[in-house]
Design a protein around this nucleic acid. Structure first.
Length: 562
RNA sequence: UGGGGUGUAGCCAAGUUGGUUAAGGCACGGGGUUUUGAUCCCCGCAUUCCCAGGUUCGAAUCCUGGCACCCCAGCCA
């Protein structure tokens, strides 16, 4: 039952491709590409695009998906982002094989095509400055005006463009513009800039260029050079499609890919804009791009979200042109579903309350067999120590419990998971504060393993950890980063950051076997949630755990409603 | 007074060549199983598809007119 066997639901892009295939368009090829700009870390919105592009290629025989870095703005891009992006894509489970490309690989070809446009009188060198250019562009409701340079001779354009490349001019002095239509109702067609002067060192081409091509010009040509059949991008590029097609129609390119736009992903209680994520990091609201609260791929990875869960999520939310906000619970559900079938169950006490088993010998230790997964016996089992003093969860005891509380209370009997029934006989409190500091319980030796020979039942089963052998360590409990569903819509979105988005628990008590846990390994801490070993802050003798997601809990739900 | 898009349940989303009782998931509510108040399993959850007209024996699907929301005036992508 691999995820590849799950029926995939229909969407408009799959339909377009099926239709193209039935008409033998592109000779039956399906070739997509994922085109990140290496100017930041990938987030869950990019995951949607990665799954779409690589997924579409994978579901068609012979389909391919390229990885292409859209590196046309050296001022914002860094080589380290390139490596991080590659890691993220591989981690998500996708592979571009030998098809790793860079828009900068095409700079020479792009330059030649620009010369071609100039020769055809389809492009010209303009000396308007930024403000003038804006003024000449017109507004949304008024047409623009033609630049005085628009009818410069081809020879002069060729000469100036060559000198732009040679570095004879300073940034801003000239730009190369496409000669289209200053009166177009589509502002993108009002003689867009296609080359600007930037005397910036490029992370791949070094100092060899003084001019860099713009996105609209570069992207469509790169697609064509790579033989892309379906160029998928987000909705805000819909208005750019006429321009995408215009360039390809003017130039002797090998093919004319089809640009198709889909809606970007929005998730509630978080933000998915590179700019805002950047600000969260820069302003110190989180501890880096890989902070487990971040919706970045590295953040989700560190949080313990399995790549299969993210892929499943991307498939479930569908692909449309609707502007939507997906409920975080959908993602969390995918994570729980994946973790439920893949993780070992272990016991950990996050908020410990000391329990003395009065009738269990003080110097004795006993090993109890505990399966790793109640529904998957093939996952095996381990032995957990039991002794005179154990820790239980403070929330599992109430001195004066409400009627539906099935856990421990004075005089009550509960089952210790995979161990014994215990009965609470005495509650020890701190004299001055009145706080419960210890419970004295007796155990029934007849109930070893958790069932009573006399058939008597107990309502509750609680988890526990033997005190003498417990591994004391740090556990971090994460919650949503924002307190409102759509922080991104607010001007003052920082004010809605959740002050309790992380709680550091320094004295959690875990069963001793967890000392062997490996970096990034996930577990279910029974009755609490799924946790993973933090890959950065753990030490060989002291793993630190991140809570990935809680278990569903109808008890807290019931209490909230009452 | 410009152009480009989108409107099916609380949140996503199938359905679109007009023809069953409008898929499925999340969320929610109810019940069963259970040594995790987990998992799992049942059951419920839109007489109605943004609104108003029209065409038709028949419309979420076709036509007309509205309304709402999103995107666009970088030498960013």
């Amino acid at each position: 039952m691999t995820e590849e066997e799950k029926p995939r639901s229909s969407n408009f892009i799959r339909q377009i491709i099926a239709d193209d295939l039935s008409r033998n368009k592109n000779n039956g090829r399906v070739h997509t590409r994922f085109p990140p700009e290496p100017n930041g870390y990938l987030h869950v919105g990019h995951a949607k695009s990665i799954c779409l592009n690589f997924g579409l290629a994978a579901e068609h025989a012979g389909g391919q998906c390229n990885l292409r870095f859209d590196d046309t703005n050296p001022e914002k891009e860094k080589i380290e982002y390139i490596e991080a992006i590659k890691d993220d894509i591989h981690w998500l489970g996708f592979d571009w094989e030998d098809r790793l490309f860079y828009a900068s690989d095409y700079f020479e070809q792009l330059y030649d095509y620009a010369v071609h446009l100039i020769r055809e009188a389809k492009a010209y060198v303009d000396s308007l400055n930024l403000e003038e250019m804006r003024e000449y562009r017109g507004t949304l409701t008024e047409p623009g005006r033609e630049s005085p340079d628009r009818n410069r001779s081809i020879e002069e354009n060729l000469d100036l463009f060559k000198r732009m490349r040679a570095g004879e001019f300073e940034a801003g002095q000239y730009v190369l513009r496409a000669r289209i239509d200053m009166a177009s109702p589509n502002i993108n067609m009002r003689d867009p800039t296609i080359y600007r002067i930037k005397k910036t060192r490029h992370h791949r081409t070094g100092d060899s260029w003084n001019i860099y091509p713009m996105y609209d010009y570069t992207h469509c040509i790169s697609d064509a050079l790579e033989g892309i059949t379906h160029s998928l991008c987000t909705l805000e590029f819909e208005d750019h499609r006429p321009l995408y097609d215009w360039f390809l129609d003017q130039l002797p390119v090998p093919c004319h890919p089809q640009q198709i736009e889909f809606a970007r992903l929005n998730l509630n209680y978080t933000v998915t804009s590179k700019r805002k994520l950047n600000e969260l990091v820069d302003e110190g609201h989180v501890r880096g791009w890989d902070d487990p609260r971040m919706p970045t791929i590295v953040g989700m990875r560190r949080r313990g979200y399995p790549p299969a869960a993210i892929r499943d999520f991307c498939e479930r939310i569908g692909i449309t042109k609707n502007d939507t906000v997906i409920d975080m619970s959908v993602l969390e559900n995918c994570v729980r579903e994946e973790l439920d079938r893949t993780t070992c169950r272990v016991m950990a006490v996050i908020n410990p309350l000391r329990v003395v088993i009065t009738n269990f010998p003080e110097d004795q230790e006993e090993l109890l067999d505990a399966p790793y997964h109640p529904n998957l016996p093939e996952m095996g089992s381990r032995e957990v120590p039991f002794s005179h003093v154990i820790w239980i969860e403070r929330d599992d005891f109430m001195e004066d419990p409400p009627k539906k509380f099935f856990r421990l209370a004075p005089g009550r009997e509960v089952r210790l998971r995979y161990a014994y029934f215990i009965t609470c006989e005495e509650v020890i409190k701190d004299d001055s504060t009145g706080e419960v500091v210890e419970l004295r319980c007796s155990y029934d030796p007849q109930t070893r393993g958790g069932s009573a020979p006399d058939g008597r039942k107990v309502k509750g089963t609680i988890h526990w950890v033997s005190a003498a052998q417990a591994l004391e360590t740090e556990v971090r409990l994460y919650d949503r980063l924002f307190t409102v569903p759509e922080p991104g819509r607010l001007e003052d979105w920082r004010a809605t950051l959740n002050p309790e988005s992380v709680r550091i628990i320094s004295g959690a008590m875990l069963e001793p076997g967890l000392l062997q846990a490996k970096a990034e390994e996930s577990f279910q801490f029974e009755r609490l949630g799924y946790f993973c070993v933090d890959a950065k802050d753990s030490k060989p003798d002291r793993p630190v755990f991140n809570r990935t997601v809680t278990l569903r809990d109808s008890w807290v739900k019931q209490n909230k409603s009452s």
